[in-house]
Design a protein around this nucleic acid. Structure first.
Length: 501
RNA sequence: GCGAAAGUAGCUCAGUCGGUAGAGCAUUAGCUUCCCAAGCUAAGGGUCGCGGGUUCGAGUCCCGUUUUUCGCUCCA
């Protein structure tokens, strides 16, 4: 078997060759880390969405869906913390090629000065007895000098960060003669700000036009609609709001095919619960979501939980469902207990009460939120890379087969006349017309039957219906199953009951 | 963003010393074929990633650039 790196390349090549994923704007040399879903890719993607939507919305009485706009009021992103959190000033050392956050380099410098003071104090402790530490700190010239420096640098850093003064940060780093911890050199690039949100202008006149952002996550569209959905949907806590939609992040490095793209699609559900019950629901959704993945028939050992040790400022529990991609276990879905952070922030910034009146407890409160958030493109890649198989058959011949879960397969059934004569094509077309309203069908009469089977294997079609001479006599056809390559003969009028996906 | 490698037909690749591009598969049309690709015939498809330079002449040498993969970095 090929090594993982080659396997991944083959999957990417297969995705392009068989019409699943194309590089964007390919005739213009492509656009970095942007991809288009092709004729089969879009079917697979839509099927994943449907499978998710059905599991989350249709199968849960207390979950409803929405589809909020990509553009949102700019204040949404101040409330959510994205405007601040996505504005890290970065600086590169030209010798070591290492990248650092400029503010952290300066903070580390401050920490060194503090170390120096502490050493001074420790030394003095040994020398004097009795030792008045407060007095020592207030009078020792070395300590005073360092403390003064700390205060000065801290103040300047705060000012520079507040005014987003990138030139000033660079100056400060040069002034303090901060060296790269790796190369030891002071050969720095300019400080640059990487805003992970894409910005654009709204309004026809640029004068006074507001900057709007392409949303970096879909969740906020749910939070700002919390009140509307709760009121108009007559929802009772606990309840959830689900959404599928595009999000955009201007990643510094976007790579690994469709795993990390600047434009991507999320399937999210925010579940609103009574405060204090969030961790119970967190466990519930962990299990539900893992079950959803495994219900597709993908083996359990391809998945694992990865609990976060370091929690984001808004979360009190968080875990990832990781999938074993060809390049290793990576995050596929996140389940976060987000507390009341988001709704509380939106209360603060909007001035509107985002509260739920609980008739059982006679209380009004800001609900806590448990989020499940899965990357649609990652799910696509997970399914595709799991399904891709190179097989050597008993007769020694090779085939490439996409063992997609039938429910997700782009084409459910191919209808093939065994030969292109004797009225078989006409009969096959009849069958196609019969099945077309119920599933994606494909008709193929070109080349030998074996080759047509292989073609369908390569795009992952689970069933091939073959029309032969016997069909004309007794109205039966054969159904050939993709993975086992086994055939059964069934009457045409029982096809719809027999083909299950 | 830095470093490394690569980019020739839809795919996999060849292309000698610098002399105006080739194979197999795939595609399309036809023939043959009653069940697991690679029988027959024919056709279509390439400004050799893009731009510049050297040269009488560049797929080939030089410079820049772009895309992809890998490593570093980043990932609320």
């Amino acid at each position: 078997m090929a090594n993982p790196e080659d396997l991944f390349k083959q999957i990417i090549a297969h995705a392009k060759e068989y019409g699943y994923v194309f590089p964007s704007s390919e005739i213009y040399d492509g656009l970095s880390a942007v991809y288009d879903y092709a004729q089969y890719g879009v079917e697979l993607k839509n099927n994943i969405k449907q499978y998710w939507w059905k599991a989350m919305v249709q199968m849960h009485d207390h979950i409803v869906g929405i589809d909020s706009a990509i553009f949102m009021h700019p204040t949404v992103w101040k409330a959510s913390g994205h405007v601040d959190a996505f504005n890290d000033p970065m600086i590169d050392n030209k010798d070591s090629k290492k990248r650092y956050r400029a503010d952290i380099l300066i903070e580390e410098y401050i920490a060194k000065l503090e170390d120096r003071i502490n050493k001074e104090v420790t030394k003095a402790k040994k020398r004097f007895d009795p030792f008045d530490e407060k007095m020592f700190r207030e009078t020792n010239p070395n300590v005073l000098r360092n403390q003064q420096k700390i205060d000065e640098v801290t103040t300047r850093l705060a000012e520079l960060m507040n005014s987003s003064d990138m030139v000033g940060l660079k100056q400060l780093i040069e002034e303090l003669e901060i060296v790269c911890p790796v190369s030891g050199s002071r050969n720095w690039t300019d400080v640059r700000q990487f805003n992970l949100m894409f910005a654009t202008q709204m309004g026809s006149v640029s004068e006074g036009a507001d900057t709007v952002y392409l949303r970096p996550e879909t969740a906020q569209g749910i939070f700002v609609n919390f009140l509307n959905v709760y009121k108009t949907g007559r929802m009772k806590v606990p309840f959830g709001i689900a959404q599928i939609g595009k999000a955009f992040r201007n990643e510094i490095v976007a790579r690994q095919f469709i795993f990390r793209m600047r434009e991507f699609e999320q399937m999210e559900m925010q579940f609103f619960v009574r405060p204090g019950e969030e961790l119970t629901w967190f466990e519930y959704w962990k299990n539900e979501r893992m079950k959803w993945h495994q219900d597709l028939g993908i083996p359990a050992e391809k998945f694992r939980f990865h609990d976060h040790d370091k929690l984001a400022h808004y979360a009190n529990a968080a875990t990832d469902i990781e999938f074993e991609f060809p390049f290793g276990f990576k995050e596929l879905e996140g389940i976060h207990s987000r507390t009341d952070f988001d709704l509380a922030q939106h209360e603060k910034f909007s001035g509107k009460k985002l509260r739920y009146f609980d008739p059982e407890t006679n209380e009004s409160y800001v609900p806590y939120v448990v989020e499940t958030s899965i990357g649609l493109d990652r799910m696509f890649l997970a399914v595709l890379s799991y399904a891709y198989q190179e097989e050597t058959l008993p007769d020694g011949s090779q085939r490439v087969v996409l063992s997609l879960p039938p429910i997700l397969a782009p084409i459910k059934v191919a209808i093939l006349p065994l030969v292109k004569k004797d009225g078989l094509p006409e009969k096959a077309r009849e069958i196609q017309d019969l099945l077309k309203p119920y599933m994606m069908c494909q008709y193929d009469e070109k080349d030998a039957i074996g080759r047509r089977y292989r073609r369908q294997d390569a795009i992952g079609t689970p069933y091939c219906i073959t029309v032969d001479n016997q069909t004309l006599e007794d109205q039966t056809v054969t159904i050939r199953e993709r993975d086992s390559m086994e055939q059964i003969r069934v009457p045409i009028d029982r096809l719809l009951q027999t083909i299950k996906f």
